[in-house]
Design a protein around this nucleic acid. Structure first.
Lengths: 339, 339
DNA sequence: CCTGCATCTGGGAGCGCTCCCAGAACCGCC
DNA sequence: GGCGGTTCTGGGAGCGCTCCCAGATGCAGG
């Protein structure tokens, strides 16, 4: 029994090579999808792999090769709180789906506020081939810093301090614009908005959409209150709006989670929804359908967002040419009872 | 310029050894926290690591060593839908927090319904040292299968088909019991429950707690309707309860997300909450605080749940003795307006 | 015929670590 | 003084791959 130390079970690349009747170089070529392999060899290798149930050692591939075979998903702790948990889980599902079948591992990095340097060092230290950066807060310099070191990255959500960093985002502007046009088509004439924070692109873009929608029809764009993506701040914002304009007949709220608070305040003030005041939210989160009344909102495909992010990064890693610098994903209005 | 092919940047273990004035064997011992290293050497190595900014290659460690330096987090796709997204994201945060600082990577596996075999093959193929299995549905054989192959695993949430598999769970029974006792202390006399599905331990345990609470005071335990952790099914269940017992004065709902639906039905029926009917939920999810009225509920520390899961697995991997086979985490009642 | 180029193949060095082994140094004990 | 033990150390094989190189083959053109 020359057993040696305990090792991973299962066949090695050499066994596959022997069974397929080729060299391990050729097996390696097939696994990595290189050209210059005859169809005969390719088939033989695939058969041998299936027969033996071979699965290559990630560690060995990474050590021997010039790639890390891994990408990072970087989530800023503050940010993930702002955009709430369901969002994040769905993004993750999308990322995971897009990675399926490829030999690429996903590393999660949830950064605490202070460990920015360690993180940059780790990311640029060759442990990953690229990074997905999501839920950035304000003008976080992380994407630019990483991009300047040459690490391929894609940012989820338009970064404010972005420079030329590629990003993927929902089309917040047109989503908001569509919501306002819809409210106008309903005959609403005094349309307010509870906007997100001004230090995030998602807040600014939805606000711009609202503004444009009103401007198209020559309506006043004054009824704005900023809020911070929490139900309580949404409630406070609604109170202020009612003080300033007791006769408003519609509100576009830049996030479902704030709309919840707004709904409560409107109802407590005795107004009927949508008869007296129509409410449109944004995100179509799980909260929207269960709100009372169910919330009309602008839907974005969060899982698709995660998939697109990942696709874009992988394409860049694969050396694809002519990739779009950035991408905006479509949104759609979901009509429920609140408007 | 003997540059060779492009490789990971940064120092190697040999540089650290040279700077510290020891051999690379000793550096390796320090990194892995082995004994039989003099204090002098240990300090020297730590200084050298800090000076050079050394970070060991995960791939090389894994390839050379007898461990994979990675654990898997397995989430069944159906299950994560059942228990809703926020739960999952919080668990993940806890897992991540517990892993911080250790040289262990986290692999996410979200299994589609059909790829059970591949998954087992991968997990037992030496790619990971152990697995965390969460949000199991019904009598999924996965934990037992894995456990029987000898792979260290910990299940999150008591598995029904568990056998002797270690698990961590919230103390659902006592949480429910406490909720019912609280309702009784309020003077409620006809306390119904909307229970979870019977094929999940979380559903059964919360139901048992409710039963015991009533039995303690000799109250009838008949007003049960089962539901499936969605708001709509919660609403339907509430309707049925009201039909069967229009004079009920309290409901214990086994999940906040179902309580949302129940709240709506109660209000539509003209009942005041909590004056006519008191409602207590379970989970203290983000939904609870924003409900109308804010929901009194049983809180479980989901992030702590993730941390405990991970801690238990790592302890087992470290070869610790006398580990508890399973653990129940405390719950606490959060009093808001609904009861 | 030889030469060039594209296609295909195998051999083998070596990625950066861990872990086994052999041995040095030091202790107290007979 | 020798001897067994414990503590500490360095050397070096080798984990399972990738990728470079050298070479074999086939086929067109000079």
């Amino acid at each position: 029994m020359t057993e040696g130390r305990s090792r991973r079970p299962g066949p090695r690349i050499e066994e596959v090579a022997r069974v397929a009747g080729v060299s391990k170089s050729t097996v390696s070529r097939v696994i990595n999808g290189e050209k210059y392999v005859s169809e005969r060899s390719r088939q033989a290798v695939h058969r041998a792999i299936a027969l033996l149930g071979y699965s290559p050692s990630h560690a060995a591939r990474t050590l021997a090769g010039s790639r890390a075979n891994a990408i990072a998903l970087v989530i800023s702790e503050q940010g993930s709180r702002v955009l709430a948990d369901p969002f994040f889980a769905q993004v993750l599902r999308g990322v995971h789906a897009e990675l399926a079948g490829r030999h690429v591992q996903l590393l999660l990095m949830m950064n605490r506020p202070h460990d920015g340097e360690d993180q940059v060092a780790y990311l640029t230290g060759g442990h990953v081939d690229g990074a997905l950066v999501v839920s950035l807060h304000g003008d976080d310099p992380l994407p630019r810093t990483l991009h300047e070191t040459g690490l391929p990255i894609v940012v989820g959500g338009r970064p404010l301090a972005g420079g030329a960093v590629p990003f993927v985002d929902a089309d917040n502007f047109n989503g908001a614009l569509g919501a306002v046009r819809f409210l106008i088509s309903l005959g609403r004439e005094k349309i307010a908005t509870i906007a997100g924070p001004l230090d995030m692109a998602v807040g600014m873009d939805r606000l711009s959409g609202w503004r444009c929608g009103l401007a198209e029809h020559g309506m006043a764009v004054e009824l704005v209150v900023h809020s911070d993506f929490t139900p309580d701040s949404g409630a406070l914002a609604m109170e202020e709006l009612l003080r300033r304009a007791p006769d408003l007949d519609a509100v576009f709220v830049a996030a479902d989670i704030m709309a919840l608070g707004a709904l409560r305040v409107l109802q407590e003030s005795g107004r009927r929804i949508p008869d007296d005041v129509a409410v449109v939210g944004f995100d179509d989160s799980v909260l929207a359908a269960t709100a009372v009344p169910p919330l009309t909102t602008v839907r974005q495909d969060v899982e698709g967002f995660g998939r697109t992010l990942t696709w874009r990064l992988l394409a860049e890693l694969a050396g694809e040419e002519k990739l779009p610098q950035s991408m905006l994903l479509p949104t759609s209005l979901v009509r429920r009872a609140s408007a």
